[in-house]
Amino acid sequence: MLKVSGLACSRGERRLFADVGFSLETGEWLHVQGANGAGKTSMMRLLVGLSPADAGEIHWRGEPAPSLEFRRDLVYLGHHAAVKEDLTPLENLRLAAALDGISLDERAALAALIRLGLRGREDLPVRVLSAGQKRRVLLARLLTRPAVLWVLDEAFNALDVGAVQLLGELIAEHLAAGGMAVLTSHQPLPVPGGKALVL
């Protein structure tokens, strides 16, 4: 379903990578590996269509990405927290869904937050939460946003042992349900299987 070929990227005058290609089918996931500065984040931003590639093609369901369908099927979580400090976790989730054109009722949002271990924190401003808890608020979007392709950049950073375990479970469930994932990480990931791509 996801087919990438001949992808090349440079930052300034430096060529980061060239001729990167892979394909993913339902239930598969890709582990993008590489040293610091190898271009993992650039690769992810290219993949989701935030930056233009120097060369190469990305196809989603046989059509060139980024199409509207691609954006509908995609959840991308980057380095940034992408949560509003002045809003509560509940408001954050519901407003983020509303911007995506999805109406999310309070019960579903609350259930996602509880699954991420934020019970009792849902009505506090995000400002007072710890860095790890902010990441959890962001990760709750994985549950509230129906998407096939998860593109997670360093999603395991700033998470404690329990949360790493939990995210691993979430990804495994997603794959079992016919989803796909592209992950970057330095550490070995608690998800079985997976293709590897070394930049």
């Binding site: 935030l50 954006r71 940034h80 992408a82 509003k84 911007l99 054109g101």
Partner: peptide, 10 residues
Amino acid sequence: DGTLEQMALS
């Protein structure tokens, strides 16, 4: 805070 990225991909 990265919200703009999310908007661009929405």
